[in-house]
Design a binder for these strands. Sequence first.
DNA 1: GTGAAAGCGCTAACAA
DNA 2: TTGTTAGCGCTTTCAC
Lengths: 330, 330
Amino acid sequence: MASLKDVALKAGVSPATVSRVINKSFLVEQQTKQKVIKAMEELGYSPNIMAQNLSKKENFLIGVIIQDICNPYFAGILKALENEIYDLGYNIIFLHSDSNLFKEKNCIKSIMKMRPDGIIITPIEWNSENILKLKNIDIPVVILTKIFEEFNGVAINHKEGGAQIARHFYDLGYDKIAYLGNNNDKFQGFQEELQFLNKKLYSYLEISLDKYDFKMAKFLVKEAIENYIKNNKELKFNAIFAENDILALELISVLKEFGKKVPEDIAVAGFDNSFFSEHFGITTVSQPINEISKLAVKILIDNIKNRNKVLERIELTPRLLPRNSTMILK
Amino acid sequence: MASLKDVALKAGVSPATVSRVINKSFLVEQQTKQKVIKAMEELGYSPNIMAQNLSKKENFLIGVIIQDICNPYFAGILKALENEIYDLGYNIIFLHSDSNLFKEKNCIKSIMKMRPDGIIITPIEWNSENILKLKNIDIPVVILTKIFEEFNGVAINHKEGGAQIARHFYDLGYDKIAYLGNNNDKFQGFQEELQFLNKKLYSYLEISLDKYDFKMAKFLVKEAIENYIKNNKELKFNAIFAENDILALELISVLKEFGKKVPEDIAVAGFDNSFFSEHFGITTVSQPINEISKLAVKILIDNIKNRNKVLERIELTPRLLPRNSTMILK
DNA sequence: GTGAAAGCGCTAACAA
DNA sequence: TTGTTAGCGCTTTCAC
């Protein structure tokens, strides 16, 4: 593969001039520029970005680590981030942690090797070792979809989202209210609001974190329901909040398998407003993906350009989208 | 950020020794190795991959360009590719062309700058300029989900997939058969099989390629249906093949809006077996994503290790999955 | 088993 | 406006 030196030789100029044509072409005379461009084309020259970055301070690279690219919600975030980032002239290094803490660790390691100007990450776990490690690096980091004490972050208020579902169930008169998922902020907000309304959580169907994976959702849901039935003989709750739309989707099919009608027998609500939830009429809480992404990039770039900025933690308000899975439409 | 030199200084050894610890640690004595490792940890050292790659010939980087990451089908491919590639000790540079030829061009440009050892791409268009440009590079390329004359490639036989849908409609007795999508191999196979069965395509609802984007699917489908109605007064076909599951999904809701029942009034079939199609009971054609990805990586690595190999073009057989959207289940 | 030195492909002073 | 030179952080001969 042709190098800058080859181009210089072919064009009969110095390497520096070729470099100028690439980076600050306004500094070079029209005529020489044309010679150089011609040589580049003839050689099919493409600058070696590794070498470029080695000799520059800023390399216009932003690392993005996404948790589960098969989840349309995260795919949407990545796409929104891309749009923002490219517009600003930066490039993205995307890495996929695949909801796996070990892989996430490797993602962070890999990204650090590339010396990005900044990092945006949707972390798998609250306060995992992986994230703590990010505290001690000298590269700006923005955490997405979760808020951490000592990091920049953009997220919706998950507690409020959970609370919205609780109020929704309450308003509709459901009295045996369950939760399916992990013990997280959504769950906390859900539970606190129930308490505030003088209700108690009727059942907690746990999905253990370390096994959680998009492809396994169906299996996990089934397992959770079967466990519940083993312990309680039958499905006794009449409303259930699943921590995300994928779980909700799977839950609805599993409930059907067990002869339950949704929402007549059991109401189901999800979270995220993934693209399919509208089609399925799943009641959910919408996250403003574009706004989140836009803010994340803004904060990151601010931090890159202007170090030692104070941390920014922005919480956006989620919005309940009531649909058929909790309400019988007339 | 600490450099190899800093580590060498701190450990009291030469840079070369530090490099050996990183790459060929068996060549260095236990004791020195420990000193070096300690220094690396204390400095939080992480090798600069840009510099590493600059001085190596092979850099264990594979570029992957995906067409539409928000489409679960492509997200699944990316994930499957990742698993294969990481297992072999390579890293992935993922780029997203977003079903946009201009962006695809930039993706290719960017990837070339990184000097990957190989490239895997799901191209947007048959024979676009972008793809033709890949012919003249000295890096192995594997094309996914489409088969091109002069490239390595892995795909299902799309014509056969289309034909399967045609036979399915025929077997079920549908007589007014339509197609929604682009003029591609699926469509060709679909149409040819209809002809073979002495049927004619009843209607062709085109979705123009350059506008096609996942997020716009709903809009495009609606537009196509409205156009159809404008020209034909009412929806006259009783079975329709949408070129992928996303279109099929959107189509089903749009048809419902127009008062049609699926499949009683109109049968709908999709393509890809995206994860949601099972839940919706959408008849579809399944693509063996894992097998495709595994083969693609295998071919690519073969080509990397062993240049001047003959081209490999593998076509896998798709499989029809009949579901409720075309058949009334008893 | 280890170090010195050259070089990967590029950019960025500095000089001319 | 252009060329010369040093150097980015690493690997890799070649000596020792």
